[in-house]
Design a binder for these strands. Structure first.
Lengths: 191, 191
DNA sequence: TTGGCGTTTAACAATTTTGTTAAACAAAAA
DNA sequence: TTTTTGTTTAACAAAATTGTTAAACGCCAA
């Protein structure tokens, strides 16, 4: 069973990352979690600190996720296959996690920090450079390859509600389109 | 010279779309515009209506932008070249416009509407299908082609603050990377 | 000049949101 | 049993945000 503190955090993440409800008040979070609002202040002191905690855990989680897959000593193509699978599953669960992070960074009282490149990422960039040499993938800046990869995975998921509107597509059909993307991404990436 | 009403709207767009400051209060918008806060109520009645107005104009603007380029009777490759140019310029000016739209759609009191596919978009999808037949571009679902296109353009721009942090890249270098993307996108799209 | 009209402002009121405090509660330790 | 500790709650207080009103202002036309 979840501690109330954990419950509050998970509920906040649910609201932010899954529902894209970035304006959530402490009352709304408390209601969604089924706890008294004062508990938020008891465990996190202030709304701001709750947000900071959620932000930090999201960034750490993102890094951890990268580390786990990108360090593996498996063939490149296999690794990408696995990575896309893992990352897109996460995207389905938390489509707005990246949006939340960006919004927080852009918000008024945001304290910069970070500033140490993920080691796994650096390693992966090297691996990409090697594969470019080998000719498995198109030559170019490895970072641009990563940009492409993440863009192709994340953007259509993030844009779901708007694209559904603009294209007048049913939820089911849209889900199908997203599900098909893994293969499409792989095809568009490899020579 | 801009009317105050227009000034308020433009300033709000500046805060939302350019600065990604989606939590802006009416006071902050008024300050940024250099007008008395009451003017917002005078011209827009309520904060909510200001947001709705900005939302609507953003969607309409987006559609208009698509219409202008996508209806042109110019060769496909040329059209895409032009389109990427136009859209990415807009993205540089308003990197968070799409984020704002998504956040609004996900927000509590959002009234659905829309539900008529842009004619230009439908036309463009047909054109894509034709080009697939011709073999100019890889065969597949035309919508997926569009997903890819928009993702490759928008996502790295939207993610700028986070990626700059995670990759520990200077603003200048990041801008260079973004500038290079037009060519990269064109290459990754055509056979 | 005066009266009317749209604009702008400050002052106020109402509401919403957040933070604090003290008391109630429950379970384990003394 | 009483104490202690940590948890939970309701009531209150403070702050922030939004909305309203009436008066002031400026400008043009009568």
């Amino acid at each position: 069973m979840l501690s109330k503190e954990e419950l509050i955090k998970q509920t906040a993440k649910e609201l932010f990352f899954s529902k894209g409800y970035l304006h959530a008040t402490t009352q709304e979070i408390a209601d969604a979690a089924g706890v008294n609002r004062s508990l938020i202040n008891y465990y996190f002191r202030s709304r701001d600190l709750l947000f900071q905690t959620v932000y930090r855990e999201a960034v750490d989680g993102l890094k951890l996720q990268l580390d786990k897959v990108l360090y593996d000593k498996i063939p490149f193509k296999e690794k990408l296959n696995l990575f896309i699978d893992v990352y897109m599953k996460e995207l389905m669960k938390y489509p707005y996690r990246e949006s939340f992070l960006i919004t927080e960074i852009c918000s008024k009282n945001f304290a910069l920090k970070e500033k140490k490149k993920s080691a796994a990422l650096a390693h992966f960039l090297q691996e990409i450079a090697q594969e470019m040499e080998k000719g498995t993938i198109k030559k170019g800046e490895p970072i641009q390859f990563m940009f492409n990869l993440f863009a192709l995975m994340a953007f259509p998921v993030i844009m779901t509600p708007l694209y559904q509107k603009l294209l007048d597509i049913s939820k089911e059909k849209y889900n199908k389109l997203i599900a098909d993307r893994k293969q499409i991404i792989l095809e568009s990436i490899f020579n």
